[in-house]
C-alpha cells in the first residue's frame, strides 16, 4: 500500500468537496479498492470514506418507491422489513452477496458505482428499472451502466440514493464462481405489468446487460415454463479459465428460469 490521506466526512457536502480534489478516491465498502491498494495497483492521494455520512444510509418508502441510501449495507437491505415486504427479490439478492463480513461492510452504492461485471446489484438495478440519484442528478438504469467498471458517473460525482419501484414481482438466481463466489452468471428478472425485464451479470463481456430474447419470451407470460429451452447467444459472452462462453450462455437460461421460479 502506498501512503495516502484518509478522510471520513460526516456530511454529503463535505464528502463531495473532498471527492472533487485531485486523485481522490471514494471508499464506500472497499472490497475492490482495498485489495487494489494493498497490491500497490492504485495510488490515490486521498481516500474519502463515506461510512459516516448518515444521510446516505437507510431504506424508506416514498410515493410508491423504495428509496435506498447508497451507503446502506447489503446486510441492512437483506434484513430490511420494507425491502422484504416491497421487493423481496432484492432482499434475497442482498442476502446472497459474498459472506457475512462482506454483507456488513459492502454497500449498494459502492457495488453499483464500481460496476464490477460479476457484481450482483447491477442486475437488480437494471432489471427493476431503478433510478440512480447522485449529488447532481437522476440517472435511469438504462443510461447508467456503460461497460465493465464504467458508469455514467462523472469524476467526483457521488451516488446518494437508489429509487426502486416498489411492489414489483422479481427474483434473482446466480451460479457462483466456485473460487471467488462472485456471479459466474447471475440473472435478475422483474415483472413490469405485462412486460418483463431480464438483466444478466457475470457473463457479459461488457458487464451487466438486458437479455432481450428472454424478455420477449416472458412478455405476457411471466413463468419459468415460458423460458424452457431459451437462453442467449454466446456472442458477447465472457470466456475465461472458469467458464467458456457457451457454458455461461447456457447458465443464463437456467438461472433465468430459476429466478422466475423464485420470484415473488
Amino acid at each position: 500500500m502506498y501512503e495516502f490521506d484518509y478522510h471520513r466526512p460526516g456530511t454529503l457536502d463535505a464528502a463531495v468537496k473532498l471527492a472533487g480534489e485531485a486523485d481522490a478516491k471514494i471508499l464506500a465498502g472497499g472490497h475492490t479498492l482495498i485489495p487494489t491498494l494493498k497490491q500497490r495497483l492504485a495510488a490515490p492521494k486521498l481516500l474519502v470514506d463515506l461510512h459516516a455520512v448518515r444521510e446516505l444510509q437507510g431504506v424508506h418508502l416514498k410515493d410508491g418507491q423504495l428509496v435506498i441510501g447508497a451507503m446502506t449495507t447489503h446486510a441492512h437491505v437483506a434484513d430490511s422489513a420494507l425491502v422484504k415486504a416491497h421487493l423481496p427479490g432484492l432482499a434475497a439478492l442482498a442476502a446472497g452477496i459474498g459472506d457475512p463480513h462482506v454483507r456488513h461492510r459492502g454497500t449498494i452504492g459502492g457495488s453499483v458505482a464500481n460496476n464490477d461485471p460479476a457484481a450482483d446489484y447491477p442486475s437488480a438495478v437494471l432489471a427493476l428499472n431503478a433510478t440512480i440519484i447522485t449529488n447532481k442528478r437522476s440517472i435511469k438504469a438504462d443510461d447508467f451502466f456503460k461497460g465493465m467498471f464504467e458508469t455514467a458517473l462523472a469524476e467526483g460525482e457521488i451516488i446518494t440514493h437508489f429509487s426502486f419501484p416498489a411492489g414489483i414481482k422479481s427474483g434473482y438466481a446466480k451460479f457462483p464462481n466456485p473460487a471467488s463466489r462472485y456471479a459466474l452468471v447471475g440473472v435478475y428478472v422483474a415483472q413490469h405489468g405485462s412486460d418483463a425485464r431480464v438483466a444478466v451479470t457475470g457473463a457479459g463481456a461488457n458487464g451487466v446487460f438486458r437479455a432481450s430474447t428472454l424478455e420477449a419470451a416472458l412478455k405476457g407470460n411471466f413463468s419459468a415454463a415460458a423460458l424452457e429451452g431459451k437462453s442467449v447467444p454466446a456472442d458477447g459472452i465472457n470466456s475465461d479459465m472458469h467458464a467458456d462462453a457457451a457454458y455461461r450462455a447456457h447458465l443464463i437460461g437456467v438461472m433465468a428460469r430459476r429466478a422466475v421460479a423464485a420470484a415473488h
Binding site: 466456485p178 473460487a179 471467488s180 462472485y182 479459465m241 472458469h242
Partner: peptide, 17 residues
C-alpha cells in the same frame, strides 16, 4: 492454472478455489 506462456492465472483466492 498456467497459461501457455507460463503466466500463473490462478494466483489468488479469486481464481484458486
Amino acid at each position: 492454472t498456467y497459461d501457455d506462456n507460463g503466466q500463473l492465472l490462478s494466483a489468488t483466492f479469486m481464481d484458486y478455489c
